[in-house]
Amino acid sequence: MTDELDLLREADPVSADTGPWRDRPLDARAELLLRRLPSRDQGRRTVRRAVWSLEAVAAATILALALTVSGTGSSPAVAAPRPLVAHASRADVPLAQILRRARAAAEDSSERSRRGSHLRTWSLSMESGKDAVTLPQESLSRWNADGSGSLLEVAVDPRHPDRPVIADGTPPRAVHDGKVLRDEKYPAGINGANESYFEDPPAGAPELRAYLAVWSPGADRDPAELISAIESFLAVWTPGPRQRADIVTLLSRIEGLRPAGKVIDRLGREGQAFRFTPASAGMRKLIVLDPDDGSVLDVEETVTRDDPEYRLKAGDVMSYKAWVS
Rank of each mutant, 00 (worst) to 15 (best):
A260F: 00
E153I: 05
I254N: 09
D162I: 09
D157H: 08
L33K: 12
V175S: 05
L234W: 02
R90S: 15
G282L: 12
V78M: 15
R311F: 08
V14D: 04
P308R: 08
T277R: 15
L84M: 11
K313H: 13
G129E: 10
D108L: 02
A322N: 07
P164V: 05
L250G: 02
D222F: 01
S295M: 01
D17A: 09
A273R: 09
G268D: 14
G189F: 00
Q97L: 14
D17N: 08
A224W: 04
A59R: 06
V85Y: 03
L297N: 06
E195K: 14
E127T: 01
R44G: 11
D12G: 04
T18Q: 15
R90W: 08
L37I: 15
S113D: 12
D222T: 11
R22E: 13
E255P: 08
F233A: 06
G19R: 06
L226G: 04
I62S: 14
V263C: 02
R120E: 02
G268I: 11
G204H: 11
E10Q: 13
L67W: 06
L26M: 10
T304I: 07
G71I: 03
L119M: 10
R269D: 12
R24P: 04
D316P: 02
A205R: 15
R49S: 14
R40M: 12
D23E: 15
